[in-house]
Amino acid sequence: MVDIKEPVIKLRDIRKVYRIGEEEYEILKSINLDVYKGDFVAIMGASGSGKTTLLNILGCLDRPTSGSYILDGVEVTKLSERELASIRNQKIGFVFQEFHLIPWATVLENVLLPTVYADGITKEKIDKAIYLLNRLNMGERINFRPNELSGGQRQRVAIVRALINDPAIILADEPTGALDSKTSEEVMEIFGMLNEEGRTIVVVTHDMNVASKAKLIKHIRDGKFIE
């Protein structure tokens, strides 16, 4: 385990430049960020602010043009595609706005998906999945399919899927964007509870109500954090 004083996420001078023809667009300009273990950070910004690009880089779905990103002690900007896949698998738990569950798979199968690309599905992982689903009151529905669930229930399944491999960070992209306000409240309570257990959470959102649940709010505008 990393030293408690080392951040789980350490971004240094992250830049992202897109080149379209002759024109260069600098989407991220020198981003620096430290997220420590147990933090709950909200990143806020309007559309076009570079928020999505930053999320892609944080989630190891994309690489920065330059800069350094150390995730849980590993410099990820130099990793190959396969190593990045393994980092996503082991160190990052995604929660998406649109839930992104496999439509034909049951709740249990969806939750176990990340374990397929770890050691394969094992008995321990199944037990763990059922335990976690029970904790989020989804124990009765492990054989349901996503279209038989409400939005809030789907998001809870997605959260359990994010937790199944015990990632270093949970990365949520507008996790309440597709939910009504009451359900949003419930989902944010779950994030709060997970954070109290010591999990590190980064939420990207433009919704102040969501961001207010975080311990730290960072605003991004024109590819830079503003104080």
Partner: peptide, 16 residues
């Protein structure tokens, strides 16, 4: 496409 992207987001490599 979307399902493939989901698998990759949760850790499937191109090879998988």
């Amino acid at each position: 496409m979307k399902v493939i992207a989901i698998r990759m987001a949760v850790g499937a490599s191109s090879k998988d």
